[in-house]
Computed example of a mutant assay.
Amino acid sequence: MSTSPILDLAGITLEVNHLPRGVRFYTQVLGLDLEALDEVRQTARFRVNLAQTLTLWKPVTRQASAPRLAPLHARGASHLHYAWQIEPDDLERCKSLLDEHGLEWTEIDLGTPERPDPTVYFFDPFGHGLELRGVNRADERQPALPPVPRPCPPHALPVMGLREAAIAFSDYPAMLARLPRAYGFALAKEQPDRDFAQFTLGPEPEHDGNGTPRRWLYAWDPQVGLADMFGGDHALLQFYADVPAVLARVRAEGLPHVETGEQLAVRDPEGHVFEFLPLPK
């Protein structure tokens, strides 16, 4: 088995139709620090932790979210399902905080009777589906950049990091072959009852067991999924990776891409744009 060049999840971009409302939601409810606001390009970038970012983008006609991505016609996801990592003991407090913010939520146990794994789902103001998933920071299945608790305002959800993103593919069999071949994503498993694949964002495929601090990419057919959450279309996702190794695969595949310094951005045939960054030094 070859080692995957994909190392971790670095960031995601969400499309919004009202940037100030998005800034208020993600600062007040999630407690994220606003790192950069570009009112011309209508983007806002938040610092999730030392290694991960969340970007909001209000699409503007004939204007790219970032100049370096203009040749790839990159967008942000218009309805992305993604997950946050929290301490398991914080789940009850998170439900109370969601109530205080007037947000409806759904709890689903993704574990087993022997080992429960309660998970909470809710939506932001733009229809993006958010998930709160408890992680055992002592688990040996660590990502390249492990989650660490951060200072958080008392009114905000105590999130530690981004856990996963779920994106849709209309041609599932082609995706299943292409993601490992063209980029090096490590296929962990498929679900037996639907077109749903889980890729470990790390050097080796691992089971997505409850409590793992690992990060994940989920790829599925476009349909309503768990807790009525769609997988994202035309997503813009960032990953930490061995960039030269990914570049060799992308060139062999003949995919459109741009290189900016040590970073690589690639347009997938389904319209998603993936950015690959070296690990922070």
Rank of each mutant, 00 (worst) to 15 (best):
S2G: 09
T3P: 00
S4K: 04
I6S: 01
G11C: 02
I12Y: 03
N17M: 09
H18T: 04
G22D: 07
R24M: 10
F25L: 01
Q28V: 08
V29K: 05
L30R: 06
L30Q: 13
L30Y: 13
G31H: 07
Q42F: 04
T43W: 11
R45L: 11
R45T: 15
F46E: 05
F46G: 06
F46N: 05
R47D: 11
N49W: 02
N49E: 06
L50I: 08
L50P: 01
L54P: 00
L54D: 01
W57S: 07
K58W: 00
R62Q: 11
Q63P: 04
Q63N: 06
A64E: 03
S65Q: 14
A66N: 10
P67D: 10
P71E: 00
R75F: 01
G76C: 03
A77T: 08
S78F: 09
S78A: 14
H79K: 12
H79F: 11
A83G: 13
I86S: 02
I86E: 00
D89F: 05
D89E: 15
E92I: 12
E92G: 05
C94A: 14
S96F: 08
D99M: 09
H101V: 10
G102H: 00
W105F: 13
T106E: 12
T106K: 11
I108F: 11
D109A: 07
L110E: 05
L110P: 05
G111I: 02
P113C: 09
V120W: 07
Y121F: 12
Y121L: 00
D124G: 07
F126H: 01
F126G: 04
G127K: 06
R133N: 12
R137L: 14
A138D: 15
A138H: 14
D139C: 07
D139F: 03
Q142N: 06
Q142D: 04
V148Q: 14
P149Q: 10
R150T: 12
P151W: 13
C152M: 09
C152D: 03
H155C: 06
H155D: 12
A156G: 10
L157R: 03
L157T: 02
P158N: 09
V159F: 00
M160F: 03
G161C: 02
I167G: 00
F169M: 10
F169K: 07
S170E: 15
D171F: 11
D171G: 05
P173M: 05
R178W: 08
A186P: 02
D193N: 13
R194Y: 09
F199W: 01
L201P: 06
P203G: 11
E204Y: 15
E206M: 11
N210Y: 12
P213M: 06
R214D: 07
L217M: 08
L217R: 10
Y218W: 13
D221E: 15
D221F: 15
D221H: 15
V224A: 14
G225V: 13
G225K: 12
L226K: 08
D228T: 09
D228R: 15
M229G: 03
L237E: 05
Q238R: 14
F239P: 00
V243R: 05
V243P: 01
V246H: 01
V246L: 03
L247E: 13
L247I: 01
V250T: 04
A252K: 06
A252E: 13
E253P: 03
P256E: 00
T260Q: 15
V266H: 02
V273F: 00
E275V: 14
K281H: 15
